[in-house]
């Protein structure tokens, strides 16, 4: 479903991704772990189509299409979703109004009928329950003044509403209390199915107790340097990244 081949990306003139290869088939959830600054968010932004990232090599195919050819909004309408590590505040814009616009532009693209206010509200309320989000909070201005954890929960609410084909979760677990972690995981698990792929970026193996991944990858210095099953996450938590660095050094 998502095939990344030898992706090289420069940011601000600096090489950040240096030949990253990764394949996430439909129906699977893959986790990416890696030290700070290794390029995890860079990868997620490049996949989502943010400007300012200079792709100098490699290719990405999404559902058979050339992902890098598309603008950010086209990618979103094609079903690519990014839960931001740092969700953006947009004061003045109602969370609900925004979501209705977003949902309808995606539905339109899929050839589905646009939802009217009643249809939207019905869906909205049911998804609020899924992610256990407070109605008042969800009706406020988009992320404006939200606490860190509230913003993350709002990302999952949006994901639940938009039902993307592929979701990237960039440290969605950071800053969440235990209940929120549970709610967010439930939201993610509810979306797991054989047609949908997910990439979960995290620092903590704890999240992977809730969202059990099919594969775990280690991103180091802009490359996937090790892959394994869920047990790799446990090992990383115990041993840190130095041993992998050492392995790499030895391999070079």
């Amino acid at each position: 479903m998502l095939e990344i081949k030898n992706l090289k990306v420069k940011v601000g003139g600096k090489d950040i991704l240096r030949g990253l290869t990764l394949d996430v088939p439909a129906g699977e959830v893959h986790a990416i772990m890696g030290p700070n600054g290794s390029g995890k968010s860079t990868l997620s932004y490049v996949l989502a189509g943010r400007e300012g990232y200079d792709v100098t090599g490699g290719e990405v195919s999404f559902d058979g299409k050339d992902l890098l050819e598309m603008e950010a909004d086209e990618r979103a309408r094609e079903g690519m979703f990014l839960a931001f590590q740092y969700p953006v505040e947009v004061p003045g814009v109602s969370n609900k109004v925004f979501l209705k616009h977003a949902l309808n532009s995606i539905r339109k693209h899929r050839g589905q009928e646009e939802l009217d206010a009643v249809g939207f509200l019905k869906l909205f309320r049911s998804k609020l329950k899924t992610v256990k989000m407070d109605k008042k909070l969800a009706g406020r201005e988009l992320n404006s003044g939200f606490s860190g954890g509230e913003k993350k929960r709002n990302e999952i609410l949006q994901m639940a509403m938009l039902e993307p084909k592929f979701a990237i979760l960039d440290e969605t677990d950071s800053g969440l209390d235990i209940d929120a972690l549970k709610a967010v995981s439930d939201g993610v698990n509810a979306l797991r199915d054989e047609n949908r792929g997910m990439l979960v970026i995290t620092h903590y193996q704890r999240l992977l107790d809730y969202i059990v991944p099919d594969r775990v990858h280690v991103l180091l210095d802009g490359r996937i340097v090790k892959s394994g099953g869920k047990e790799l996450a446990l090992e990383l938590e115990e041993r840190g990244y130095d041993w992998i660095r050492a392995e790499q050094g030895g391999a070079n």
């Binding site: 989502a48 189509g49 943010r50 400007e51 603008e71 950010a72 909004d73 990618r75 979103a76 309408r77 979703f81 990014l82 931001f84 969700p87 953006v88 947009v90 004061p91 003045g92 814009v93 109602s94 109004v97 925004f98 979501l99 616009h101 977003a102 949902l103 532009s105 995606i106 693209h109 201005e141 949006q158 938009l162």
Partner: peptide, 21 residues
Amino acid sequence: FYLMQRGLSAEDAVNLIVNGF
């Protein structure tokens, strides 16, 4: 970028912000 990542065109994104304003 945030709004476009959710499927809005650049113009719709601007209009949404302006209307909110």
